[in-house]
Amino acid sequence: MALDVSVDLCGISLRNPLVLASGIWGSCAETLVRVGRAGAGAVTAKSCSLEPRQGHPNPTVLDWGHGLINAIGLSNPGAWEEKRILQRAAVGLKEMGVPLIASVFAETIVSFQRTVEIIAQAEPDLIELNISCPNVEDEFGRPFALDPIMAAKVTAAVREVYKGILSVKLSPNVPDIVQVARAVEKAGADLLTAVNTLGPGMVIDVHAGRPVLSNKVGGISGAALRPIAVRCVYEITQAVSIPVIGMGGVLTGEDAMQMLMAGATAVGIGSALYYYGEAAFMRILGELEELMVQEGYSSIKEFRGCAHG
């Protein structure tokens, strides 16, 4: 029985459902191409902003035992340089038929529009909006992703200036992720990416008597995030009709199958690269295929969303 692991993401064809998540290995063209060569179905670049950002000082990322905690601080070279990086990556990825996803964040709606306009010139297959960053126009500087109205406003504003395929990346740190998902869908998103890191969390070194991360708090990813991410994807896909790239703690083929059964169309892989390097992709794909054979599935659509009953 021939297995078909390809998926269709808003008309973009992926040879397999595994997508490199934003912020892991994605800050240069060559590493993006390398991940494509290693078997990823698609790759996402590191999130970029209009102006370059240094990010937080070290320590920025820790393995705390059950996953990672990070406060990189969205360091990036700015939109103009990112455009060049994406253009170079696209050349290598196109040869292999691996779609390229760009990721954009900003602290104001206008700046979201402007950054997307620049990044769009690199013609990525898809642009993802990382709205988990503070909105400086909000009275409390809350992230856009925490407020369905603000999330929808950003989406609609970007929709005006960008006609390509648009994803909005949701935060799990909300009481009702469905509300945000619905608002963003209505505002014109073509798909959703869910979820970003959980928290923030904190790790205190008891000998130093202080938080280890220089930013004190950071986002939780990896195994600890998985059950929450799966629940988020399940709830979202029940409520919206656009596809979802599900991510959060996917380290094995079984984890990937959980995401797909929860209703995801594709599956993001981030922290797994800490444990397995780029070999994570073939490893997880191999395990997924093996499980499909065991369970008698020959294509992904046969079990996508089956957990909804």
């Binding site: 912020g23 892991i24 290995w25 994605g26 800050s27 240069c28 060559e30 590493t31 191409v33 390398r34 590191k46 990010g55 070290n58 920025t60 990322v61 393995d63 990672l68 990070n70 990189i72 360091s75 922290s271 690269l273 800490y274 390097g277």
Partner: peptide, 20 residues
């Protein structure tokens, strides 16, 4: 180097990560 553990991609040289 930022993370030092092959996650962030900051220490790239060509297609390799110097820390990992």
């Amino acid at each position: 180097m930022k993370c030092g553990i092959g996650v962030c991609g900051h220490c790239h040289c060509g297609d390799q990560l110097v820390c990992r």
